[in-house]
Amino acid sequence: MAAHGVTPATLQRPRRRPRTFPLVMIAPAMLLLALFIAYPIAESVHISLGSWDGIGSVAYRGLANYRRLVHDSLVRQSVVTSLTFFLGTVVFTVAIGCLLANAISREIPGARIFKVVWFLPVIIPVSVAGIFWSNAFQPTTGVVNSVLGSVGLGDGHAWLASSSTAPYATIFVAVWTQTGYAMLILLGAMDTIPPEVHEAATLDGVGAAGRLFRITLPNILPMLGTITTLMSVFSFNAFGVIYAMTRGGPGNSTSILPVLVYKQSFLDQDYGYGSATAVVTTLIVGAIGILVLQVFRQRSLDAR
């Protein structure tokens, strides 16, 4: 230390540093977020208030895009599709994830292998999952139909060609790709419950289902809230799954809002209108997020 020449000035410095140092550390990240997240959101609102064809500047047109949006049946259909997709994926992802986690939470033999295997679909590139499954859903060559055919449920279903079954097929694949994630996070929460609690309940004659509902679930409630919120956001980012499987079709039947925005902007070159849809999407996601948090906060308080 002496080599560095300790003067009163350098002794003063550490006291000042802790304040500015964290700010300096945080600054680059904030800059990146400002440039590629905050600015784009503001700019989306700006573009949505006018018309823009991809070149030149935005011509201000007030709320025209939003007025058009309210009366657009494609948009309405897309909102319904998105909400169905959101509900389907979130409910099944969280429920199945929870059951899987519960099944391996108390270090049963082979738990680690199950954990890895169930998590694998999260790792597989979304395009690969989408392409693989759309292939599996094909009428004559697909794996799904040959399995159904072999148990006598018929093998001629054209899952992705019909607008009544295609949405469910996409929900299935989205659930398949995300469940491992939910499982892992819930498993982390379940492992914090002291094993003695479960042992005591078992001694009192509480069965596995009783333990799940009366011990495990109340204890992981905050984490259930977190994972539900996360999965809700994921469900509105599931562009890749849908695009790889159906491109939003047949018709508009699997076009969740992000896919519709893509079509409006990059296929129809109507960026103003696309932006308006994107802004509305964000508002819907925000509303759902607040709703989910509210529901789980209420439940957590009740549980206490």
Partner: peptide, 16 residues
Amino acid sequence: ALSVPLVVALIPTFEL
């Protein structure tokens, strides 16, 4: 920032 749907940044990012 984590909860922002990616789609809202899509068009402005393309522009930027």
